[in-house]
Design a protein around this nucleic acid. Structure first.
Length: 269
DNA sequence: CCATTCGCCTGCGGGC
DNA sequence: TGCCCGCAGGCGAATG
């Protein structure tokens, strides 16, 4: 499931393939993902040269010399494939450069592709309400204290809210709360300053470790089969219901709004 | 404003 | 073996 670290490694993997390259052909193999592709996507991208790639929250950004930026979101099953030998069923968007071919594959089609003028990137609706980047200077215990004040929803749900912090998903919220020793059900507004002081570095540490693991498990961020952004990870609690925690207790799970939370009741209080 | 629920979509694994 | 069902997930819309 692509969260911030997976998008980051995807962007790093795409950079050497796309940066400075001209897009010679754009092929849409279906009209939409979660939303329709922009009508003029092919027209505005074809012939343009990619000037740089970056990331905001869980969105990947591909800027061109035509003044446009393509914004992609991988949803839950999206991935870019580099120079695939053959196209697969869910390769929905194909970008060609003079030397390579990229396929955006997304089986469940929860992803999206948009094209916006780079100058008005800040006006992109999804960007307007995003909170600070968790790896940037904006995420501090003081910020969280203010942002969470009075909130009765659980800290688990608040950390999933992109308006509070941008880029976390279910996996890394579970992992960060475990590392911070914080019970996921605690009302967000009741976390002490000391707990927030533990939570912020826990979030950063979990994300940085995942990015590092992604980079090191991908040869130059691209596996020999051309897959980008997916790699095996070891989680402390996520997906480990019933298995032993390092403390000797067992990892527990509960569902809230149809979403699973994994945690260790002994370590997280 | 805040909290909660739902729909979107398809592959996969478990149960029968 | 094959079919059905539930689950997984981010996000935006709708509802209370």
């Amino acid at each position: 499931m692509p969260e911030l670290p997976e998008v980051e490694t995807t962007v790093r993997g795409l950079t050497p393939v796309l940066e400075g390259q001209r897009i010679t052909r754009v092929q849409l193999r279906r009209p939409d993902l979660r939303r329709p592709f922009p009508d003029d996507l092919g027209q505005r991208l074809t012939g343009a040269t990619v000037t740089g790639l970056s990331r905001r929250a869980k969105y990947g950004l591909i800027a061109t010399d035509r003044g446009d930026t393509m914004i992609f979101h991988l949803g839950m099953s999206g991935r870019w494939r580099v120079d695939p030998a053959e196209l697969l069923k869910h390769d929905h968007l194909i970008l060609e450069t003079p030397t390579q071919r990229l396929a955006l594959n997304d089986a469940r089609r929860f992803g999206s592709v948009d094209l916006v003028p780079t100058a008005s990137l800040a006006d992109f609706p999804a960007f307007k309400t995003l909170g600070p980047e968790p790896l940037g200077p904006g995420l501090t215990a003081g910020y969280l204290h203010t942002a969470l004040a009075g909130r009765i929803a659980s800290i688990k749900l608040m950390l999933l809210d992109q308006r509070i912090v941008a880029g976390l998903g279910n996996i890394y919220v579970c992992e960060a709360l475990f590392l911070g020793g914080i019970a996921p059900k605690q009302a967000a507004g009741t976390l002490s300053r000391a707990r927030l002081d533990r939570l912020v570095p826990a979030i950063r540490s979990v994300l940085l470790a995942a990015i590092e693991a992604g980079g090191s498990s991908l040869r130059d961020y691209v596996r020999p089969d051309g897959e980008l952004g997916y790699f095996s990870k070891q989680f402390a609690v996520y997906g480990r219901e019933g298995q032993p925690c390092g403390c000797g207790g067992a990892v527990a799970r509960y569902a809230e709004g149809g979403r699973s939370t994994f945690w260790c009741p002994k370590c997280q209080r």
